[in-house]
């Protein structure tokens, strides 16, 4: 008899503890506004990201098609994976007429980048920064190798 009472008692205790948990589940079922899920592809227009968000490395250009990269290779040395490669060309300085080294192509392999931000903090002239683009998927692997300086661009005046 004592065993039977204990057995039935356990059943009711179990049902009580189950109800305890299910009550919370049902509460959220009837209060969908307290759920935090973001409906991602639908909310693209209203999506806000932090200002320090690390999307991909970009090189900002001003309206005269000028950038700030002097080609000092600080970023190339700081990168742990060899993501960045800077190729040079010789240009003639307009005022002095001397030959000078300048960047030809700033090659950036997005596929190898781990978004660690070390190149950005290594840059002495703030020539590169992280953009907020994060949808990197593509059908062709070749499109992941990017040249960051625009064609015909040159070094901004006053940046050494």
């Amino acid at each position: 008899m004592k065993f039977l009472i204990e057995y039935i008692g356990t059943i009711f205790k179990s049902l009580g503890s189950l109800w305890n948990g299910m009550r919370l589940t049902l509460y959220y079922f009837f209060h969908p506004k307290e759920i935090h899920t973001q409906q991602y592809p639908d909310n693209r227009d209203t999506l806000t990201l932090g200002e320090r968000f690390r999307g991909e490395v970009v090189m900002p250009h001003d309206e005269n098609n000028e950038h700030k990269c002097t080609g000092c290779t600080s970023c190339e040395l700081a990168c742990p994976n060899g993501t960045i490669k800077i190729l040079y060309k010789n240009v003639v300085d307009e005022t002095t007429g001397k030959k000078k080294k300048a960047i030809d192509e700033f090659v950036y392999h997005l596929g190898m980048c781990t978004f660690c931000n070390l190149c950005i903090i290594a840059c002495p002239t703030d020539a590169i920064k992280m953009s907020h683009d994060f949808e990197h998927s593509t059908f062709d692997r070749k499109s992941l190798t990017k040249i960051l300086n625009k064609p015909g661009s040159k070094l901004m005046k006053g940046v050494e």
Binding site: G21, H36, G50, R52, N117
Partner: peptide, 26 residues
């Protein structure tokens, strides 16, 4: 075998991750 804890735990974790996102960048 309980499904609801998964959502409850991730809900609070998401707030922390947003703090990291804002301060650290990822």
């Amino acid at each position: 075998g309980a499904t609801t804890p998964f959502f409850v735990g991730f809900r609070d974790r998401e707030v922390i991750l947003d703090i990291f996102d804002e301060t650290c960048g990822s």
